[in-house]
C-alpha cells in the first residue's frame, strides 16, 4: 500500500473549511445572542445579529453547493455505510475509540478512494449533513423572515418552536464540532488528518 494517497478533492476541502469557518462565526455570535446579558458582553448585540444573518445565509448557500456537488460528483455515496458487516464494523470502531486507541492497536478502518469514512463516520456525517443541517438552515431562514413562522402555537408566539428548533440543532452541531475536531487528532499523528483536509493527501 502506498504511503500517501490522494483522497480529498479540492471542492470538498474548500467547502469543508468554508463550512468550518462559518460554523465558528455562527457559533460565537449565536451563543452571544442566546445568552445575551449586560453583565457578560461578548459580541455587541446588533453587530452579532448582522454577522449571524450574513454568515447564516452564506452557510445556506454553501450547503446548497455541498448537496448539488455531492449529487453531480457522486460523492454522496461516501456517506452511505456499505454492507456487509455494518454493525460489527460499527462496534469495532467504537471499541477502538474506547479501548484500542489506548493500547496502540491499528485503526480498524483505512480510508480508500471508494470508502473515505469508517461506518461510524459515515453514519454521523450523514445524520449531521442530511438531518441536522437542513433543520438548522430551514429554522434559521424562517427566523430571518419571521413572517413565514406560524402566528401562534400552543398559546405562545409561533416563532417559539422555530427558535427552539434552531437552538437545539445548533447545540447539536456545535457538540458534533467539538467531537469532530477532537477525533481529527486520532490520525497517524495528531495533525495528520488536519493536514489531509488542507492537502487532500492521506498518510497511511
Amino acid at each position: 500500500m502506498a504511503e500517501r494517497e490522494y483522497l480529498i478533492s479540492p471542492w470538498i476541502r474548500i467547502w469543508h473549511w468554508t463550512n468550518a469557518a462559518l460554523i465558528l462565526v455562527l457559533g460565537t455570535t449565536g451563543i452571544s445572542l442566546h445568552f445575551a446579558d449586560p453583565n457578560l458582553p461578548f459580541v455587541e448585540f446588533s453587530l452579532a445579529v448582522r454577522v449571524h444573518n450574513i454568515a447564516g445565509v452564506t452557510l445556506a448557500a454553501a450547503y446548497a453547493f455541498f448537496v448539488i456537488a455531492n449529487i453531480v460528483t457522486g460523492n454522496w455515496w461516501q456517506f452511505v455505510p456499505k454492507p456487509p458487516g455494518i454493525v460489527p464494523r460499527l462496534v469495532a470502531q467504537a471499541r477502538w475509540y474506547a479501548f484500542g486507541i489506548f493500547r496502540g492497536d491499528p485503526h480498524p478502518h483505512s480510508p480508500t478512494k471508494d470508502e473515505h469514512f469508517n461506518v461510524l463516520q459515515a453514519l454521523t456525517y450523514w445524520s449531521v449533513m442530511y438531518l441536522l443541517m437542513p433543520l438548522i438552515i430551514l429554522s434559521g431562514l424562517i427566523y430571518l423572515y419571521p413572517q413565514f413562522a406560524p402566528d401562534k402555537m400552543f398559546g405562545f408566539d409561533g416563532l417559539l418552536p422555530i427558535a427552539m428548533l434552531h437552538y437545539l440543532s445548533a447545540a447539536a452541531v456545535l457538540l458534533f464540532m467539538l467531537s469532530h475536531i477532537y477525533l481529527g487528532t486520532t490520525g497517524k499523528t495528531v495533525g495528520a488528518m488536519f493536514k489531509m483536509m488542507f492537502t487532500g493527501w492521506h498518510e497511511h
Binding site: 445572542l33 442566546h34 445568552f35 445575551a36 448585540f45 408566539d157 416563532l159 417559539l160 427558535a163
Partner: peptide, 12 residues
Amino acid sequence: ILASSYVLGATR
C-alpha cells in the same frame, strides 16, 4: 412576553 413575541435573549 412569549405569549405574543419571542424575544431573543429574554424569553429563554
